[in-house]
């Protein structure tokens, strides 16, 4: 039994290899990009628009709204990164209904890559928003003693992101494969449906956590206003 699609290798040349994770990722990328291209090819700016355009507008505006609710005011700046995170993870989960498909997010390599992207994006956006000094100072707040704990926190949450997604996706695929061997009827379908739900929840959690981390890093700390004295 395979724990990860990384183990299914189609082609290898020394360090370079072409495994199922990369291939399915490309497939997903192709579907997402071509689908987007097809729908946005004939966009209507009027009041009448196609159903697909409506769907995409709902998705994009929904993501934007979620980002705003987390606390990122200029949501369009972060929409590309966070939106793509959500869409990729969600698409990877949704495609599990296709027989023979292995979700790339079921590979720890993929989730680690995504977590590392978040790990890099947090200081990137933080520095972009606050400046280097101000961002680095946030590590020694409230006291200098907190510096190692903050660094450990950064690393651990990145690890947590990667492992959480991997665990969920991998466990879903694993449970279905085990159930298929024990009760090949009905139950795998239910578990697949449950897997879809889990996948969507994971996609939401992953992107929301990333948004929260970025929001924490980009927020300029302002002194709290003093409460007015009653006369």
């Amino acid at each position: 039994m395979r724990l990860s699609p990384d183990e299914m290798i189609f082609w290898q040349h020394g360090f370079f290899k072409l495994n199922a994770t990369i291939v399915f990722t490309w497939g997903l990328m192709l579907v997402l990009v071509v689908g987007s291209k097809l729908i946005t090819r004939k966009l209507s700016t009027g009041l009448k628009r196609s159903r697909w355009q409506n769907l995409l507008e709902i998705v994009v505006l929904g993501i934007e709204k979620q980002i705003e609710e987390v606390g990122l005011n200029q949501s369009q700046k972060y929409l590309d990164f966070l939106g793509t995170l959500f869409l990729f993870v969600a698409a990877a989960s949704l495609c599990t209904v296709i027989p023979g498909y292995e979700p790339p997010t079921g590979s720890l390599s993929t989730t680690a890559a995504l977590a590392m992207c978040v790990f890099v994006a947090v200081p990137f956006f933080g520095i972009k928003e606050q400046g280097v000094g101000s961002y680095l100072k946030s590590y020694v707040k409230p006291t200098f003693i907190m510096l190692p704990f903050n660094i450990i926190s950064e690393l651990s949450r990145t690890l947590a992101l990667a492992v959480r997604l991997f665990g969920n996706m991998m466990s879903g695929a694993m449970i279905i494969s085990i159930l298929l061997t024990i009760t090949p009827f009905i139950f795998p379908i239910i578990m697949t449906a449950l897997g879809l739900l889990t996948g969507m929840v994971q996609a939401y959690i992953f992107s929301i956590l990333a948004a929260v981390y970025i929001a924490a890093a980009t927020r300029v700390r302002e002194p709290k206003p003093k409460p007015e004295r009653k006369t």
């Binding site: 990384d6 990328m29 793509t84 990729f88 890559a113």
Partner: peptide, 9 residues
């Protein structure tokens, strides 16, 4: 794969 996926992403 990690590098390739990061790049892909």
């Amino acid at each position: 794969t990690v590098g390739a996926q990061a790049l892909n992403f």
